Simulated assay, not measured.
Amino acid sequence: MVTPKRPRTIQIFLPSGDPSGIRIAEQTTSIIRVVEVPRSDLADFLKMPEAQQVALYFLVSGDTKDEVYIGQSGDVRTRLMQHHKEAAKDWERALVVISLTNNLTQTHVLYLESLSIEKAKHCQRYELLNSNKGQKPHTPIPLKADCDEIHLIGSLLLATLGYPIFEPLTEQTSLATTPVFHCNRAGVNAKGMYTNEGMVVLKGSSAPMSTQRKTEQRFYDKRDELIAKGIISVENERFVFQRDYLFQTPSGASMFLLLASSNGWVDWKTENGVTLHDHQGRDLETKVQKT
């Protein structure tokens, strides 16, 4: 489910005043709240009244915070304590979705857990650590409508806090209007879309497994990491993207493909050979002139 793009007001409260500590996000017109809890501050959260509620929660891990476990509980305090004690559970941040009026039921969160797992798999933003699909209980139509709205608001709040678990990398509506850029140096055959999050390398893009250029081991390490995760595969001495993948910068994307240093603003070009740098400059001038 793509969050509708319209103006909204989001409030983020810092209980301790520390921007890297516990953060509480809410939309001013909604009763849904998301609490972001660093694992180091878990004890502080467990003392808060929000920890005594029925809740949907997300445990985020990975060096780049790209792995997530999705769960639900009728007593999120007890459940998070259990996760903290489990040696096999490697997580750094908990994101807890609750209601300001404490009116979520076990049926709500069971449905939301199943829906969230389904949506997270579809978006492929994060590596999902769940071993099952969750339990989707029989849900009356009015309650299902409430859950869909909760999921919509929760998705927005998660993305605002920096966890766009349910936001597609490329929206179907943008595919026809957003230009596709190509990186074709040194045997690379890649396509990408420049978004407000960075450069999305599109599924099917490929590059040689090795390079004759001066390079560093870190480029190979990142490639091997994505191979291990199944994001790219090896085919005929080339690595091929099995799904769309976001790099934070155009240069980060082109360096990954070329296995060496690169200026992505120059190495990404339109089909007509216009560099990303020149294209964005022209696009900026056009938009400014229209205002």
Rank of each mutant, 00 (worst) to 15 (best):
R282E: 07
V200A: 09
A120F: 03
S262R: 02
T211D: 00
V288P: 05
T107Q: 15
W268L: 06
Q52H: 00
H108C: 08
Q242I: 02
K89E: 07
Q124P: 03
L14T: 04
A120L: 11
E127G: 14
H108Y: 05
M209P: 08
E26P: 01
L56W: 05
P250D: 03
M48L: 10
K89S: 13
E197M: 07
H279D: 03
K5N: 13
E167D: 13
F45L: 00
F58C: 12
D148E: 09
N184K: 13
Q248N: 11
K47Y: 04
P250V: 07
N189R: 11
P142I: 01
T275W: 04
L257M: 00
P4K: 01
L56R: 12
V76W: 01
T173V: 11
T178R: 14
S254D: 11
M255I: 07
F45E: 00
G252N: 02
M255A: 14
E149P: 00
R218L: 04
E92P: 00
Y245I: 12
V240A: 04
K133G: 06
V54I: 13
Q280V: 08
T9W: 02
L276C: 10
E167S: 12
S114E: 07
G230Q: 06
R33W: 01
I70K: 05
V2F: 10
D63K: 15
R79N: 01
S99G: 08
S205E: 12
V200D: 02
T195I: 08
K65S: 14
Q172P: 06
I227P: 06
W265T: 03
K144Y: 09
T170F: 07
G154T: 01
A25M: 05
T270V: 06
Y194W: 15
F241T: 07
T64M: 13
R213E: 06
D278H: 14
N196Q: 12
T215H: 05
S206P: 04
Q124D: 13
Q53K: 10
V109Y: 06
L157K: 11
E235I: 10
T107D: 12
K290S: 15
R238Y: 02
V68M: 08
M81Q: 10
H138D: 11
Y111L: 07
S206F: 04
E50P: 00
A186H: 13
P168R: 11
E67Q: 13
D18M: 03
K47T: 08
S206Q: 13
I70G: 09
L46F: 03
P7L: 09
T286N: 15
L175S: 09
Y126S: 05
P38W: 01
W268Y: 08
L169N: 11
A260R: 14
E285N: 03
H277M: 07
N132L: 05
L115F: 11
A253Q: 02
F247D: 03
E271M: 08
D221K: 15
D148Y: 07
V97D: 00
P168Q: 10
A253G: 09
N103C: 13
H84M: 00
S116R: 04
A253L: 01
T28G: 09
L128F: 12
K144F: 06
L115A: 14
A88D: 13
Y163F: 15
G281N: 15
R238P: 01
K119F: 10
D278P: 11
T3V: 14
D66W: 03
Q11R: 14
C147I: 04
P164T: 08
L112E: 01
H151T: 00
